[in-house]
Amino acid sequence: MSYSAEYVSTGARVGLRPFRHADGPEFTARVRESRELHRPWLSPPATLEEYEPYAAQRAGCGFLVCELESGGIAGFVNVNNIVRGAFQCGALGYGAFAHAAGRGLFGEGFDLVLAQAFAVDGLGLHRLEANIQPGNTASVGLVRGRGFRREGFSPEFLYVDGAWRDHERWAMTVPS
């Protein structure tokens, strides 16, 4: 497998790049390896048939967090439901893969996505939201530690892992 890629942004240990067709086998294998970590918080595509439309829908607003040393995929961050005009907002969807969890790689990649989302020459957004299930302490810690504020609670907000699940609404606006 070739790990050469043009990164949108790089940090000390990770780089961000768009989803590619060729990433399907590695991405779906990492999803299957990470089932215990992800459930019931999220259910990313675990088969190539699910991956293809998922990756295509994220063109321009989905990022793979990749280890610079190996090129391997450590996780993903998507900026979904972008609304332009007076709102300039997007909703984050993300997940680290089990082999990278606890190593700080995903946090570094998440910071790169935030910079990309708010940059005028990036997505140029003013606001980002993250909707998180109340028991997902790792995800709450990730956004809280980066300056997101809890803005509310949404009962039965998203259909995840076979059920309508409650979510806390966290948000931040462009850092000044």
Rank of each mutant, 00 (worst) to 15 (best):
G141D: 06
E156M: 12
E50F: 10
E36N: 10
S70C: 09
L142T: 02
F76P: 02
F110K: 06
V83N: 04
G72T: 14
R144D: 02
G85L: 04
L68H: 07
E69Y: 07
R146Y: 04
L92K: 01
L105D: 04
L112M: 11
G85C: 07
G104C: 10
E52V: 15
W41T: 10
E156C: 13
A74Y: 03
L68S: 14
V83L: 15
E156S: 15
F87C: 09
L114S: 03
H167P: 06
P40Q: 01
G95R: 03
R39E: 09
L128K: 04
Q57G: 15
N131L: 04
P155R: 14
G85N: 04
G104N: 12
G95D: 03
R58Y: 01
G104A: 13
E129K: 04
R146I: 09
L37D: 02
A138N: 09
G62V: 07
C61Q: 15
E156P: 07
A163E: 03
P45G: 11
R150K: 14
Y54K: 08
E156W: 10
E151V: 11
V143F: 03
E49C: 03
F87V: 12
L64V: 13
Y54M: 06
F97Y: 11
T137W: 01
G72Y: 05
G95S: 13
R84P: 02
Q88G: 00
V65G: 01
G95L: 00
F76G: 02
L123Y: 05
G104Q: 11
P40W: 04
R165A: 14
A86H: 11
L42Y: 04
L125E: 01
Q133A: 15
E156Y: 11
G109H: 00
E168D: 15
Q57S: 15
